[in-house]
Simulated assay, not measured.
Amino acid sequence: MTKLPPGFIHEVPQHLARPDVPQDPRTGVPIVDLENYCCGAHGFSALIQTETEGSPPHYTLFDTGPDSRSIIRNIEALKPPIELIERVVLSHWHSDHSGGLLAFLRHRRAHAPNAAPLVADLHPDRPIARGIVPPHVGKVVGRIPADPEFAQIAELGGVVETHAEGHAIAGDTVWVSGEIPRVTHFEGGLPGAVRWVESAGDGNGKGEWVKEEDIMDERYAAIDVVGKGLVIFSACSHAGIVNVVKDAVDRFSRPIYMIVGGLHLAGSDLIERIPPTVDFLANKLRPSPTYVLPMHCSGFAAKVALEEAFGEGCVPAGVGHKVIVEGSPEAENMMHGTTYQ
């Protein structure tokens, strides 16, 4: 219900504007059908639609949420054109981003059997298992649920593509990064993250947990909108959102227009990262982003700090929201000669 900027649309008006919205027979007005609305969960998933003048739109699913149920409920609520989705990109191997992939592939095969094959864009370094060691505990308290296996994805019709390097997709309208350089002194990955490692060829479960806080398989997605700049999708920002932004600006020499996703600043062990992160985005990055949409693992304290720094430029985004970013050739002409840093 929070006020949103122009181009940001809440879920309810999207439903009420659809031609198939249920009507109340008694009063004759549309029903706010909460039984069939979206369901939030601890994860991330965004459907990205990109198009250029004179070309058909491209649809890219960036991450799939944490489980087999929420993504299907949200597909049924929002009714996106699943038959037109060309590619699903997993930002990294953590199940709160990959957990819905197999369910999505099953749903697409059942409800869009004649659709073109779907590419699964994955980092090649899939872990056997990942776990977490909470601060001051000193031992692994649990493993993260298993990510989908390449064979499982292929069995459900996904065309597996592995990419460790950056590459363009969706008719060259979306850039998927390669390894994100770690250049800041205060962004130190995911504290307490560990990975299960076995000897080559073992396959017998004998192995050990090794420290893996950097999560080097993480990737971001970027779209360069004419007259606006880069829209960055950083699903979890284990690399640090400042490292993500620095890499994007260095690579494209373009301003950052919008940052969408998890900033991984939640929790008492990450609280010290919030001030330098907000200071960089609001004061050191020039020009600063027009909008920041902190979601997923960003945390309440980070959202408060970003709102203080950006005002209405810090947008409380969530499941079911639609964001429209339109290019402007006139604005692009005004941007020529500007330095971005």
Rank of each mutant, 00 (worst) to 15 (best):
A115S: 15
V119K: 14
V137C: 09
V231M: 03
E155R: 14
L4H: 07
N333F: 07
Q14P: 05
R182L: 15
P80Q: 10
E312P: 06
G158N: 09
P13G: 08
I71K: 04
Q23E: 11
P181V: 12
A266P: 00
C314H: 04
R69D: 13
R273Y: 01
V88W: 02
V242G: 09
H296Q: 08
L34R: 13
G267D: 02
A116D: 08
E312W: 05
V260K: 00
E212V: 06
A331Y: 05
L281I: 06
Y291G: 00
L285I: 01
H58S: 13
M295S: 05
P81I: 12
I128D: 00
F44G: 10
A193M: 13
G192F: 04
R18N: 06
A110N: 13
R106E: 15
I82Q: 13
A222S: 10
E308I: 00
G313V: 02
V319G: 06
A146P: 04
P287S: 05
S237F: 05
L263N: 06
V325K: 02
I128S: 07
L306T: 05
V304E: 14
K206L: 11
T50K: 02
A317T: 15
V260I: 14
P113Y: 10
F186C: 09
H107N: 07
E76N: 14
K139C: 10
I72K: 11
D147I: 08
I232G: 03
E187G: 04
F252Y: 09
H42W: 12
V325C: 03
A41C: 11
A282I: 04
F280D: 01
R87I: 15
V194K: 00
V137Y: 09
P22T: 09
S328W: 10
A120Q: 02
R130G: 09
Y59S: 08
V133H: 01
P191M: 10
W93L: 04
I259Q: 01
H42K: 13
V160D: 07
D214Y: 05
N333Q: 15
R87L: 15
L78T: 10
E149F: 01
D121K: 03
T184L: 07
